[in-house]
Amino acid sequence: MKGSKLGEFEEVILLTVGILQGEAYGLGVQRHINENSSRDVNLSAVHASLNRLDEKGYVRSMLGAPSQSRGGKRKRLYELTPFGVKALADMKKLRDELWSQLSPEVLKLHTE
């Protein structure tokens, strides 16, 4: 297992895989991110990232059924592993902890 730290982009992908609950595959993940944020990620980057997350053990994958809309090709469906869930939870915990320490004035300064 290569380095187990989660990058920002990987975190987004990982979260999206969780959200899509068993319906997560390359194009679907990309679509979801593009629809829900202002960023325009490209498909090959999503694939690369999913591949890496699989190698690191945050997600596991299996091939789905072939469908006509994909020219008879199967999807690779991803789901979170317990290790992936834990990584997300850790990340959230760290963020919440840090956020709670942030003085409201600082935020105000930035929204003004």
Partner: peptide, 12 residues
């Protein structure tokens, strides 16, 4: 990887 990528590309 070919099958899944080709599928995704086809759908897109």
């Amino acid at each position: 990887l070919l099958e899944e990528i080709e599928g995704d590309l086809y759908e897109a």
